[in-house]
Write a protein that binds this DNA or RNA. Structure first.
Ligand code: MN
Ligand code: MN
Ligand code: ZN
Ligand code: ZN
Lengths: 136, 136
DNA sequence: TGTTACTTTGTAATCATTACATATTAGCGG
DNA sequence: CCGCTAATATGTAATGATTACAAAGTAACA
């Protein structure tokens, strides 16, 4: 029997709606963005439920909480190792799927046990580049 | 005449105290940590002044605002390109001075103009590793 | 179908950060 | 040195994201 290593959570319409919205979503939404999107299908959902569910999913390693945006936390349903590129202007985040060699030799690790790595790139997205250009 | 490319700011005792505290500091302090430290020498300083000064220094590229800690912003007077390792338990941040090859080919950049890069490593610092061990 | 532990909800609290109005002062020009 | 003024510091209030909490509701199991 193929073992199902996805831990079970009690399924509710709210959670289903959040999971459906997140499934395959590469927009790195904030809690607010998730709330706004899910509310369209499920108008009675509360903000707290979004936060609660995100916490639960985080604990189960089903979402990744990103601190790359200085204004708010962003959530990524893709928990496979990958990297990000953020627009410094509009805060749009896109994925960078590349394998960088990021090994830190012991003498540079200062006694830390390293278990995760993440590369952040900063720049301007195409839209914001154009806006800048037109303002010259 | 060797040009002094450090832009002038009006020097105040408050700013001098903050700058002195930051000079060569590799602890990646939060605004609160800066406030607490500076207050020892300069008890009448206000929290707002710390924030104001950090904003000014940021604008002049004399400090780097780090979003690596999910609880609070952290500040780094070393604005040269380098990377960081954060303890997931106590949030202690140390520098990683290494040259990684982090070039993103155009077809992966999705039209973004990339101007910055930063590698974050996550792990456990020596102290927190020991604490974990003793709790087993 | 009944039970109950887990969820949801609304509201209040918290915490970091920013806004603002007022008082102070660094640094320039005379 | 002195006086002026734009820049800065301060205290307090506001904001905005996130978390805490208590009460009501319900998914999932027996
Ligand atoms: Mn991603
Ligand atoms: Mn550093
Ligand atoms: Zn943009
Ligand atoms: Zn630690």
């Amino acid at each position: 029997m193929p073992e199902d290593n996805v831990k079970k959570i009690k399924m509710t319409p709210q959670r289903a709606a959040i999971l459906k919205y997140l499934e395959g979503n590469t927009s790195h939404p904030s809690a607010e963005a998730i709330f706004d999107a899910v509310r369209k299908q499920y108008p009675m959902i509360s903000f707290t439920t979004v936060y609660n569910t995100l916490q639960t999913l985080k604990d189960l390693d089903r979402v990744w909480e990103l601190n790359i945006d200085d204004e708010r936390k962003r959530y990524d349903p893709n928990v496979m190792l990958h990297h990000h590129l953020i627009c410094m202007e509009c805060k749009k985040i896109v994925d960078i799927h590349m394998d960088f060699q990021l090994d830190v030799p012991d003498e540079k690790a200062q006694g830390y046990m390293i278990s995760g790595r993440h590369v952040e790139f900063y720049g301007l997205c195409p839209k914001c580049r154009n806006k800048k250009k037109n303002n010259d």
